[in-house]
Write a protein that binds this DNA or RNA. Structure first.
Lengths: 236, 236
DNA sequence: CGAAGTTTTGATCAAATTCAAGAGTAGTGG
DNA sequence: CCACTACTCTTGAATTTGATCAAAACTTCG
């Protein structure tokens, strides 16, 4: 395992289309080192609020380990708009725009915390960085669109299958199919899928009883029947 | 009305938060003029495919009038991931990434067509342009997230109300509430809302019979009961 | 071990899907 | 200008699916 050399922004290289599902580092050694200087390591325990929509945003975060949930806040029942994983960056666009997400640790989280002003200065000095930013934004955009495609599905078990396949994709160490881990709790998954916890539970049961998946425990799922699974997912 | 001076990229300025719902021009006169030189005007009739996912992308488009629908293509029933309006840019990110959208004219469309290579060259020469690009991407991202929030709603009439309010926001000439126009057909709206045409029709009927909206014809809706309307929408 | 919190399961109810048939709207050509 | 056709939109009845509410099983953690 690599030694953590400072903040890491991971993304799929858009200019290497057939890449083997791996995300790679967008920042050069120099940038990482410079960011490391202005960053501090922070920890959040599960369920802890990281920041609320509308709060004055003075820092951005870069996840080292754990999963963060971004909530779509605006009254009503809380929906999760995205799960953020190690290598993701968040809290950045607040100064200008989308201040309508509240973030909360979905599991225990370790992250780098970087003051916005310092980042801004760095961006001014390294114009290449905004190419990285554009790449990252494109990736987030695609993710949001996939999420919308997921939510457009009507059958709960289909939504779950798509979610599992996204999870698998993110975790794909190197192609080989393995056990999928679901670090977040059921309520969070339900909030992401636009379902109630009850419906989600039944969806798990449906896929399990059809021998499409099997779960070792609440946080580990294996795909048994790849063909059936793919057939469910490919419908999007 | 301003004389069309070439391609226009319209967006909400992220650094002027409380802006009066108006979108403004991201390109300077110089850029517009330069883009105009490499652009040709093209027309598509309603329903015509503009490009298919996976096709070699050699040009980007900038809408002058009409509405384009971007489909999430990957087998299955076709879902519309976004409606593109005058001032929007599309077909740009294909060379690298999100090649999984097929676009189709939802109404008759007039657009500028710009070869990608020329745009790339222009971008290299005007580094300021990628700030505009970042702004535009952020806006698209927000749109995609709003769309996801919409789809997370369970009641069809709520989804419709949110859609209407988005439409109204886009058309807001200057604050004053007016008739909302829905240029696209019902099937397209249903595909965007993740509903069947039947469910959408019933949703219209529900809102109409509750005297929340009334429609002059298939393409023109007025909001009668603002309070009730806002109450529905604010739930997101 | 016990208590607080999650997750599953059960029964009822409401809402959207499906499929099919019936109004309504263009758009075309006589 | 009207009539005809093709199409889109609405409506209806039966079915499926998820929501809701509440209680029971299971985890976690002190």
């Amino acid at each position: 395992m690599k030694h953590p050399a400072g903040p890491a922004i991971l993304a799929i290289d858009p200019w290497a289309p057939g890449s083997p599902s791996g995300r790679h580092q967008l920042l050069g050694e120099t940038e990482r080192a410079q960011l490391a200087k202005i960053a501090t390591v922070v920890r959040f325990e599960k369920g802890h609020k990281i920041y609320e929509a509308g709060e004055p945003a003075d820092a951005a975060f870069n996840i080292v380990s754990g999963v963060v949930a971004a909530y779509w806040s605006q009254g009503g029942p809380e929906h999760i708009i995205s799960f953020l994983h190690p290598g993701d960056l968040f809290g950045l666009s607040e100064e200008g725009r989308y201040a309508n997400t509240t973030t909360r640790a979905a599991t225990a989280v370790t992250a780098y915390r970087m003051p916005l002003r310092a980042i801004t200065r760095l961006l001014e000095r390294h114009p290449d960085l905004d190419v990285s930013l554009i790449i990252k934004l494109c990736e987030e955009l695609r993710e949001a669109q996939r999420h919308a495609a997921l939510l457009a599905q009507k059958r709960a078990s289909t939504r779950l299958a798509i979610f599992l396949s996204l999870q698998e994709h993110i975790q794909a160490s190197d192609g080989q199919p393995a056990e999928i881990s679901l670090p977040m709790d059921r309520a969070s998954i339900a909030a992401y899928l636009g379902l109630t916890a009850a419906a989600l539970s039944r969806a798990f049961r449906t896929l399990t009883s059809k021998r499409i998946i099997s779960s070792r425990d609440l946080h580990h799922v294996t795909i048994l029947d790849r063909d059936a699974f793919v057939k469910l997912v490919e419908q999007i």
